[in-house]
Write a protein that binds this DNA or RNA. Structure first.
Lengths: 123, 123
DNA sequence: CGTCGTTATCTTTTGAATAATATAACGACT
DNA sequence: AGTCGTTATATTATTCAAAAGATAACGACG
């Protein structure tokens, strides 16, 4: 049996390569999986508040995410209305939808990378 | 100008894809960059204590890392001697050196992936 | 058997991120 | 003007992880 990384570890352990991925500008990191899901739910519910509730997240945290996103983008990706009919609400821009799509594809490539490395490790 | 992800963001921001990577078994994650550097320094100094100091890390934390590694591997990767000449000391096994090498190569492939994605994003 | 610097643990403290609480502002509509 | 549910923001608690501190055990060697 040729020396392999795999059998340095205890037998029976399910070793895998794992990681996380995000988009950042300078030190500010944003647009990981959480924010993307938030965008999707805002789009569906029309409300930051309800989107947050669905995710078991506080409104404050959701708002911070939205705010970070909006300050990093040329035009706000979440367009909000405070007050008004039904008290207000939020929708997401076309650019936001583009970002969601892009993020999904990026993530697919990343998980493929991880999978490949995990398989390679187990050889 | 065709619609591109890049110019959804504010002009002038240096957007990049970033991430982190580690090896894990079940829920236990280990062997990220920190532990690897620790192994290298233990190898050079012959002491967990000194290695930790060089990295500005507490001995306790270093020991926990070493302990986690040693309990995940078939044979201890850090072989320790408590007491004795000079009070004791630690060396690393050949397997540890293999792990260091493997991790370096893995990390190279990962940074290449990130770089590629960042470039693709900027097109 | 005393010395040495290290390994091995336990306990306490600190600090920072997260969550909870509270309150105000908003504006269409009746 | 009053109602509605939302957005906006500040303040206070809580939790949890990391750090710090303290103490004991270890064993070759003079």
């Amino acid at each position: 049996m040729p020396s392999s990384i795999k059998n340095i570890f205890k037998k029976g352990l399910n070793i895998s390569i794992s990681g996380s991925l995000w988009i950042e500008s300078g030190t500010e990191r944003f647009l990981g999986p959480g924010p993307v899901e938030l965008l999707e739910r805002i789009s569906k519910t029309g409300s930051i508040n309800q989107a947050a509730k669905q995710m078991g997240m506080s409104y404050q945290k959701a708002w911070r995410i939205v705010n970070t996103l909006n300050t990093q983008t040329a035009k706000p990706v979440v367009i909000v209305q405070t007050g008004g009919e039904k008290g207000g609400g939020s929708t997401i821009s076309d650019e936001a939808k583009q970002l969601i799509k892009y993020h999904g594809q990026l993530r697919e490539r990343f998980t493929a990378f991880l999978k490949k490395e995990t398989i390679k490790l187990k050889k």
